[in-house]
């Protein structure tokens, strides 16, 4: 039983890490009021997906899929597609983070704070005034 469990954990180590990171990220996004921390959480969340994809592309004993002229023996290649997909996803993630950060800068300029509850409070005050 216990060896089974151990095997489960060690054999799927990457996947477990991905799940843990996913949960950590999600928790940070939802629980923190600081906008920067939210973005950090979002990044962790996205990173977990990168790990998930890259892990599934890995094949035991597989090597980088580079085709060499003249080599007749067919080596085992890792699946390159998930890597390619994740390159795109990383670009998307960076763009999102950049946009998010620039929004935070603007928010800081307008509201003088990056704490969600304080922003909400100042909005409520404004709504009540007129």
């Amino acid at each position: 039983m216990s060896t089974d469990l151990l095997e489960q954990v060690s054999g799927h180590f990457n996947y477990w890490m991905a799940v843990i990171l996913m949960m950590v990220g999600l928790y940070v996004v939802l629980s923190r009021h600081n906008l920067i921390k939210k973005l950090v959480g979002l990044n962790i969340f996205q990173t977990s997906v990168f790990i998930l994809y890259v892990s599934m592309g890995k094949i035991h004993g597989g090597i980088a899929p580079i085709y060499v002229e003249g080599v007749t023996e067919q080596p085992v290649f890792s699946n390159p597609v998930p890597h390619v997909l994740m390159l795109t996803a990383i670009v998307v993630g960076i763009a999102t983070t950049a946009l998010g950060l620039s929004l935070v800068v603007l928010i800081k300029k307008t509201f003088n704070t990056i704490e969600e509850d304080e922003i909400q409070a100042s909005l409520d005050k404004k709504r009540r005034k007129p």
Partner: peptide
């Protein structure tokens, strides 16, 4: 408020997109 609304949308939208990609 537009900035704050956009930020909130960004957080939730990204979560949605990431769920999809998972």
């Amino acid at each position: 408020q537009a900035l704050y609304a956009a930020f909130r949308y960004l957080i939730l939208g990204t979560l949605g997109g990431t769920f999809y990609i998972i």
